[in-house]
Write a protein that binds this DNA or RNA. Structure first.
Lengths: 243, 243
DNA sequence: AGACTAAATGACACTGGGTGCCAATGCAAT
DNA sequence: ATTGCATTGGCACCCAGTGTCATTTAGTCT
């Protein structure tokens, strides 16, 4: 399931000429600099000192480059879910697992932001993301189904998977252009907002505390786990800042 | 924004050799029969008695075929939202508009099911769907932003758009393999479930009333607008039917 | 009737992603 | 030195999509 191991035995046959990591790094670099569609696989292969044909032996698609070993990540999500005690209610469990899943080690923040930025910005990558996130969603759906003793393909589990992904993606989009290091807080806030959607809807500009001016890269840090109450409390001070 | 009108003046120049509708119908037919990736644009063009080059003058992409005039549909959604009175709370307004948006005239049900089925089943079309639905989401986000006097690109409006799309897609997926005619009911139930996510999560197999056995095409009709209470009431009778 | 105009088509060449096939390569073990 | 073998590289090929331009098919004007 996860990507082919980079070093299984490495004793027989011709040695590898590159690695997934090298190709991915070169690809992301070029995509970021020139835009996804203005970079050809040929250019990436050349930069890696490898033939075009060999590139496609490492990545099935140009669009796979920014995703790293996503199958492994999906398994990590499954692991996070498995770690949540059974007595935690479903949505709280999902929320907690997804938040933990999105803890990015400080040294990996820049790389992660660059890759997510590409994935959620470049049209071709936006398109492919749905195929990747499908597996992610399914893990949530399976967890939900197991918890409620339902078929994973039935309505409610699929809905929970879909909604969880919504929260994550909405959080990603706000986090990417921000200067904030802590992605998991954004995720947590998104889940909080969803669970309280119907209570937030009444003229409450609650989410303003998480708003950011994308152009100015001005972002207000949220300290700790934001609750809906905290968000609502900061409503007045920001209410008139909208254009 | 919407697709080029089929009959603007039609008096000068060489007459058209085909129409969007004809190409779309042929395409959907072939995709359904042989699978999306096993049908080439050449085959579709041949079947329509038109050159490959001409096909691309009607549709920018092979993947656009099942979408009809989606830009117009997005405008229809915008219209539905505009029709909702201001005193209806945000989520209720969105819910109502999306439900109305998804009312399919009886004679169009089969076609709509076929197209949605392709869009949510064929990997390449799944991928492209995100680019299409992006505009759809944005309409919801703009509505939300206007209601709350926020920037449409800020967190909460984007989240609402994302969540609304989640509800719709989850409903689509259940509706497609069902024998049920009424799509809008599925949509309504999905929104109901989302708004009450935190109340549903406690071991309640509420959604069983909407469950369907995809293989057997056995679906229980939901009469009228399902409420969470109604869903919960049918919990016991179905609780042991899960595999 | 014949020339003119304009919109649309069709043909061709080209780029780029992705695949199948097979010979060549480089290292290790013998 | 030879053999085994995983990997590479080259080549041909298919398909989606684009740019260019000549050609077709009408209606219209004289």
């Amino acid at each position: 399931m996860t990507e082919n191991q980079e070093t299984p035995d490495r004793t027989l046959g011709r040695p590898r000429a590159t690695t997934h990591d090298v190709l991915a790094e070169i690809g992301v670099e070029l995509f970021t600099r020139h835009g996804y569609e203005h970079v050809s696989v040929q250019q990436i292969a050349d930069a890696a000192g490898v033939s075009r044909r060999t590139f496609f032996r490492y990545f099935p698609t140009k669009a796979d480059l920014p995703w790293g070993d996503f199958a492994r990540e999906v398994e990590r999500l499954r692991g996070e879910l498995a770690l949540v005690p059974d007595d935690i209610p479903l949505m709280a469990a999902v929320r907690h697992a997804v938040v933990e899943f999105n803890r990015v080690p400080p040294e990996a923040v820049d790389q992660h932001r660059a890759r997510l930025g590409l994935i959620l910005t470049e049209p071709e990558l936006i398109a492919r993301s749905l195929l990747k996130f499908r597996d992610w969603r399914q893990v949530i759906a399976e967890f939900t189904a197991r918890r409620l003793n339902l078929d994973p393909t039935s309505f409610f589990p699929e809905l929970v998977g879909e909604v969880a992904l919504s929260a994550a993606v909405a959080a990603y989009r706000q986090w990417i252009p921000s200067l904030d290091t802590d992605l998991s807080t954004f995720i947590d806030t998104a889940f909080a907002a969803i669970v309280d959607l119907d209570r937030l809807e009444q003229g409450v500009a609650a989410q303003l505390s998480m708003r950011l001016d994308t152009r100015g890269r001005d972002h207000r840090r949220i300290t700790g786990t934001a609750t809906i109450q905290e968000m609502q409390e900061s409503q007045e001070e920001n209410a008139d800042e909208t254009r």
